[in-house]
Simulated assay, not measured.
Amino acid sequence: MPDTPLPRDELRATVEARRELGPEYESALTEAFLDRIETTIAQRVKAEADSRLPDPRHSTWAEQQERKRHLGLALGSLGIAIPLTGAASFSAGLSGLVIVWTGIVAVNVAYALGQRRRR
């Protein structure tokens, strides 16, 4: 966790400053205190999240290759879908579109299910 003062210490310091400066500074002191608390909470949440989540810069070669395969399938599906959609709609109409898109969806679902089984 980041080295930040405990909220109690911050609150004590804020109350003491209010006593010294008077009630006309109460709003500014309260806002400053709440900003420090918010910053402390954000730092702690970030530190906790960073400790639990893997750093993508340290991914393994296999993970990088798997991401490339996923991207390749997605781009390949779109690349083949565009001309097939045009050809199917021109020659076979709606039934051709349904067949083309059913095939594209089936390929992607089969790939996703295969990936899930491998894990």
Rank of each mutant, 00 (worst) to 15 (best):
D3F: 03
P54Y: 07
T40M: 01
R117G: 02
A112D: 06
I82V: 14
A106V: 04
F33H: 05
I37H: 03
R119A: 13
V100Q: 01
I104Y: 01
A112P: 04
A17M: 08
P56F: 03
H70N: 14
I99E: 00
E38N: 08
T40P: 03
W101M: 08
V45Q: 10
R57L: 03
E63S: 00
L75D: 10
A28D: 10
P7M: 05
R12Y: 12
D35I: 09
R12W: 09
A17G: 05
S95F: 10
S91Q: 09
W61P: 09
T4M: 04
L73A: 14
L97W: 02
N108A: 14
A32G: 08
A28S: 07
P7A: 06
S59T: 09
M1C: 15
D9V: 02
K46G: 11
R69F: 10
Q115P: 13
P83I: 04
T102C: 02
R57N: 00
L21W: 04
A88C: 02
R36E: 04
V107Q: 05
I80V: 09
G79N: 05
G96N: 06
I104Q: 03
E48M: 01
V105K: 08
S91T: 09
R19W: 01
Q43L: 09
L34N: 07
I41G: 00
S89Q: 10
A47P: 02
P54I: 08
E31N: 12
L75H: 02
T39M: 11
P2E: 07
E48N: 06
L53E: 15
A62G: 11
L21Q: 06
F90G: 11
L73H: 08
Q115K: 15
R52M: 15
E63W: 07
P83S: 02
G103W: 00
G76V: 02
F33C: 01
L75A: 05
L11G: 01
E20W: 01
T40N: 07
W101L: 05
V105W: 12
L113Q: 13
Q43H: 11
L34P: 00
W61H: 13
T85E: 06
L53D: 12
A49K: 08
R118G: 05
Y25I: 04
V98G: 03
A28M: 06
E26H: 05
V45S: 08
S95I: 12
A62L: 12
L78E: 05
E63A: 01
H58E: 04
V100G: 05
S91V: 09
L21P: 01
L53A: 15
S95Y: 10
R57A: 06
G93D: 02
L71Y: 10
A47N: 00
A47G: 00
P23I: 12
G96K: 00
K46E: 15
R18K: 05
K46M: 12
H70G: 11
D50Q: 10
L6A: 14
V105G: 00
S51A: 14
M1A: 15
